[in-house]
């Protein structure tokens, strides 16, 4: 499935590498983890702990808490508020069994 988002072709973008669910992904420096996820074609960042519904970033401004993911080992981070960093370990929070959120 093609990505729902793309980055505008802007000169001078800096690129870094992060790990998303163990895969090395090139993302733009300065963007948030949530933005990077969306631009990388990832549909959902987690499933809900109650019914297992897929969810994705919704408000991008820190008020909806839908964009929670595991960042560098810590679950439930608000990824729309965290800038990407070189080598960052990002994981989706999938499955009710994990119990997070």
């Amino acid at each position: 499935m093609p990505s729902s988002f793309r980055r505008l072709d802007e000169p001078g973008r800096q690129w870094i590498q992060v790990q998303i669910d163990g895969q090395t992904v090139r993302v733009a420096a300065g963007e948030t983890v949530a933005a990077a996820i969306l631009a990388s074609g990832i549909q959902s960042c987690r499933t809900t702990p109650l019914s297992g519904q897929p969810r994705a970033p919704f408000c991008m401004m820190g008020v909806c808490f839908e964009c929670l993911m595991e960042v560098d080992g810590t679950p439930n981070r608000q990824t729309c508020q965290i800038p990407v960093k070189e080598g960052m370990q990002i994981r989706r929070q999938l499955g009710r069994g994990r119990g997070y959120i």
Binding site: P2, S3, S4, F5, R6, R7, L8, E10, R13, A28, G30, E31, T32, A35, L38, A39, A56, P57, F58, C59, M60, M61, C80
Partner: peptide, 18 residues
């Protein structure tokens, strides 16, 4: 998503619907 989210993606990251 919210339209505000769309704007934030555009302003802060230059990300738009593909």
């Amino acid at each position: 998503m919210t339209a505000g989210a769309g704007q934030i993606l555009l302003k802060s990251a230059g990300i738009v619907p593909n």
